[in-house]
């Protein structure tokens, strides 16, 4: 394989762009396929699309013999807006699950290294930080401050950038108000429906009488 192809693949990966490397096991020249490039007429179009979708690398059989498809999807990331107590648990859980976690919270009383040792922590407003983090479809965002001044921009930005998961905490009432604010700010209804409200799982809460749940 030409080292220029390795360099080109590494450049796509470093830029968090999906790519597939097609390596014929006959020794014929390999090909680099970048996300979004047209695949019409490609004898392996279906297999390549599947590699982009699943991120699974595998050997496939084409007309000219076997080809190995190396699927390179950007590694998943989680941006947590809010350096609150649940973030102290969520950040290590995310790391174990293979997510690179970043916490953003402008409140310096919350965003302290002592509370979040070993976690990437940025004590700035989401407006100032998130555009530079390059949120993308392989990024999840969880807004957990319950404070519209901090959460709202982050939610709008995550929806605009196509994050695969956009979650927010708060009661139904809190979320209802959130929807009203974001809707008034021009966020399309389809986008608002993508917000996973009450993103905390019931099982993550202490047990309490069923009649009081909901």
């Amino acid at each position: 394989m030409d080292s220029a192809l390795v360099s080109a693949l590494n450049a796509e990966r470093a830029a968090r762009r999906a790519a597939v490397l097609a390596t014929p096991l006959s020794g014929a020249p390999a090909r680099l396929l970048r996300a979004g490039e047209p695949l019409q007429g490609d004898p392996l179009a279906d297999e390549i699309r599947e590699a982009f979708r699943s991120g699974v690398s595998r050997r496939v059989t084409g007309a000219d013999g076997d080809v190995f498809l190396t699927a390179c999807l950007p590694p998943p990331r989680l941006v947590i807006v809010g350096a609150v107590h649940i973030s102290q648990a969520l950040a290590p859980i995310a790391a174990i699950a293979g997510f690179e976690a970043t916490i953003v919270d402008p409140r310096t009383a919350f965003a302290t290294e002592a509370r979040f040792a070993g976690v990437r922590l940025i004590a700035e407003w989401p407006e100032e930080v998130l555009p530079g983090l390059g949120l993308d479809p392989w990024t999840a965002l969880a807004a957990v401050t319950h404070d519209p001044k901090i959460d709202d921009f982050a939610l709008r930005h995550a929806l605009e950038r196509g994050c695969f998961y956009v979650g927010a905490l708060g009661s139904r009432k809190t979320h209802g108000k959130r929807i009203e604010r974001l809707s008034a700010a021009g966020v399309p209804a389809d986008d608002l429906a993508r917000i996973r409200a009450r993103s905390a799982s019931p099982s993550a809460r202490p047990a309490r009488p069923r009649s009081r749940w909901r």
Binding site: N10, A14, P75, A101, F116, R120, L121, A123
Partner: peptide
């Protein structure tokens, strides 16, 4: 400004030890 964990390894660059 504000506290930032500068000593934490740059998790944004997990590729540095990558074989490719």
């Amino acid at each position: 400004t504000g506290p930032t964990n500068a000593d934490v390894p740059d998790v944004a660059d997990p590729l540095s030890a990558d074989p490719l």
